[in-house]
Design a protein around this nucleic acid. Structure first.
Lengths: 231, 231
DNA sequence: CGCCGCGTTGATGATTATCAACAACTGTGG
DNA sequence: CCACAGTTGTTGATAATCATCAACGCGGCG
């Protein structure tokens, strides 16, 4: 099978496409362009008209906003299966953020015009887009809760736990992007993240470059609870 | 005209309903219930199945999340014209937040089943819901940017400016909800907000109970810029 | 009146940012 | 293969910001 063929197969597995009828998927698939980016590449910029929806197939994108003074704030990082710009693109609005690759990234680019057209005839697509938007609202609210209510160590712990999946025991997880990006995502300075990692050695977290060795995942979860109670 | 009739007229003015075709509006309007709540009343709770969409007609609702430890975090406050729970309700999911009245509130309650039904036949309604969801994403990203990148005084200033509308000169604005709620919305403790208000007297802001007397709105905007540059 | 919710102010402490130096690693070109 | 620059990450000293704890004023209301 061709590379493009494999990518389409991969697409069909993603939640956004999985709920679509076969013919709806085909119509979208025929308009999809698979694109690759390298670290630091920009997919779109704040203020540009949103012309495409992106679906992350592999790697991570960071969305950030730039203030009039040029200060950059990372809003959120998107990974495999997540859609980016789905609502603005369908509505024909301008991008309110800038999207940049945090490393090598493969995305599917869907022209907004095609999506809007197909959505008119296939209501499941509207629903799929709304589902994505709703998930995003949920995730952003979660991020706000974290920023308002939790200390640096709690945020870092939760982030590490989110990397671990469901297995309770010891494991080694790979940090998905640079520590600078992790820090910005968590609303911390890089130095603060570094110190937090150092403190967490006491609860069985050992960070070795890009690898996080965790002695006891269940123990970490207990530690988050403990920190919550103190507050 | 009856009270209900006046309320329906008011509804038609709100952005969410304004884009709908007349017959679509009628179908929704016939299912609308206008409800009033008093300060502290709960409209829905985190974890409940979302059965209705709410549109704020008058007053303010605060959405908050409660951690397993019982700690409450205010996520966002919604005012006139804003829709609440539109995406979760249409998708039939559970509420991820609790909604409480910050004071006397009038809302329109739309049964999710009716909205979902009508949306199937009137694509403009799907679009209106997506528009609302998109606006919410934008607003939440804005809140995240504020939390990550700005100090207490900057957030308070921005909040005050948001109350002022476009007039540049001196004016008196009414604080829309208690200072405790304002503080929680801005991610501050009440004491910190109080001290920030005190500091801002130096730039022409005088808080007198629920009234904010502002000497020079344009000056405030300049002050925000100045604080940004220092950072 | 006395209580309660709301808000202010003061003293103190914890958390996080800032500034600065340096170590480790990556890719590049000679 | 090595020197080099550039990026990434660590650590230390210090400072700023914000939270916490506590006391108290003010106003409304049973």
């Amino acid at each position: 099978m061709s590379t493009a063929g494999r990518s389409l197969e991969a697409l069909k597995m993603l939640p956004f496409f999985a709920t679509l009828r076969a013919d709806t998927f085909e119509r979208l698939a025929s308009a999809v362009r698979i694109e690759r980016f390298r670290k630091g590449d920009t997919l779109f910029r704040q203020g540009e008209k949103a012309a495409s929806i992106f679906v992350v197939i592999e790697g991570f994108l960071k969305l950030s906003r730039v203030s009039p003074q040029g200060e950059e704030t990372l809003i959120r990082i998107f990974g495999r299966g997540e859609t980016v710009a789905e609502s603005v693109a369908v509505l024909g609005d301008d991008h309110t953020t800038t999207a940049e690759a945090t490393g090598p990234v493969t995305v599917a680019r869907l022209p907004a015009s095609v999506v809007a057209q197909v959505a008119r005839e296939a209501p499941e697509l509207s629903l799929a887009i709304l589902t994505e938007a709703s998930a995003k609202i949920w995730a952003l609210m979660d991020e706000i809760e974290t920023l308002k209510a939790q200390t640096a160590d709690q945020r870092v712990l939760r982030f590490l736990i989110s990397l671990c999946g469901s297995s309770p025991g010891p494991l080694t997880a790979r940090l998905p992007y640079t520590k600078g990006d992790i820090a910005a995502y968590l609303g911390l300075k890089q130095e603060t993240l570094s110190r937090s990692f150092a403190r967490l050695k006491g609860v069985g977290v050992d960070i070795d470059g890009r690898d996080a060795h965790i002695t006891d995942v269940a123990g970490l979860k207990a530690e988050v609870e403990r920190l919550n109670r103190i507050v």
